[in-house]
């Protein structure tokens, strides 16, 4: 069992014009194995930057990230990624997208096929293995992306607005799928979103970030994800405390937006 520890990281981008952007400042988080963390915040508050640091694509200017006691220094198969869109390999069919990770590891064909067949079933695409990915709808493509990530059996799944480009109905179905997969696989998940509702539905833990400098503004522990595992998501939205928490967070984010606008006007 391995936890994901974000130890006081800061990230500063030095711009070409001599200025610097403090994208993250003193961000610390401690995630236990199997926790689902949703990260919410207005655009430009450093969510993507944080995820890229967790994935190992960026090295923070200060602090470090540790997974299972080992410091993260680059990308690795123990941290799987699901992107918003367009990260599938369209020159491979669905099956080969999903078994990409195992294939690169040199896993035997039979074993790979067993994993892939199982995953196709899990994400509800069991007749689509030989289809070209560009023939699938946006929602189906994201199912493939989830399956591809799971095929590699990572410890942590990092998702950057994975459902952001989907229509409302598909999105709701996919939220249910994410919850189901999280519960079944017991993986640690970090999910970035700019939808308050999605953050509430999926985040067992939720951090709200504020911009300039990007930092953690509030942290929550929420009951809704646990409810969503056994309950219809629409019922969860009607359940006790949901609407109230949503209003509270919306208020908070509106406050941040107004502050940004104010700063811009005075600048």
């Amino acid at each position: 069992m391995s936890g994901l520890i974000i130890d006081n990281i800061s990230m500063r981008f030095d711009l070409a014009n001599g200025k610097a952007v403090q994208a993250l400042q003193n961000v610390s988080l401690d995630l236990k194995q199997g926790e689902l963390l949703a990260v919410l915040g207005p655009s430009g508050c450093g969510k993507t930057t944080l995820l890229n640091i967790l994935a190992g694509f960026l090295a923070p200017t200060e602090g470090q990230v540790r997974l299972g006691g080992k410091r993260v220094t680059g990308p690795g198969p123990e941290r799987g990624m699901v992107f918003q869109q367009g990260a599938l390999f369209e020159w491979m069919n669905v099956r080969h997208n999903i078994d990409f990770g195992p294939r690169m590891k040199g896993m035997a064909r039979a074993e790979r096929d067993r994993i892939t067949d199982h995953l196709l079933e899990t994400v509800g695409l069991h007749d689509f293995g030989e289809k070209a990915v560009y023939e699938l709808s946006g929602g189906m493509q994201q199912r493939v992306a989830l399956a591809r990530c799971l095929a590699n059996d990572p410890d942590v799944i990092l998702m950057d607005e994975p459902l952001g480009a989907l229509d409302a109905l598909t999105r709701e179905k996919m939220q249910g799928l994410v919850l189901k997969l999280w519960k079944e696989t017991a993986k640690t998940v970090v999910l970035i979103t700019h939808s308050v509702e999605e953050a509430l539905l999926l985040g067992e833990r939720l951090v709200v970030m504020a911009p300039r400098p990007g930092r953690i503004f509030r942290e929550y522990r929420l009951p809704f994800a646990e409810r969503g595992v056994n309950m219809d998501l629409r019922a969860v939205k009607r359940s006790e405390g949901f609407a109230q928490t949503r209003e509270e967070i919306l208020e908070m984010i509106w406050g941040m937006e107004e502050e940004i606008m104010g700063k811009r006007e005075s600048a």
Binding site: F57, P75, P77, C149
Partner: peptide
């Protein structure tokens, strides 16, 4: 994102 995905899937 394709390159990042491939790295995260353990490709050399």
């Amino acid at each position: 994102s394709k390159i990042h995905a491939a790295y995260s899937l353990g490709a050399s």
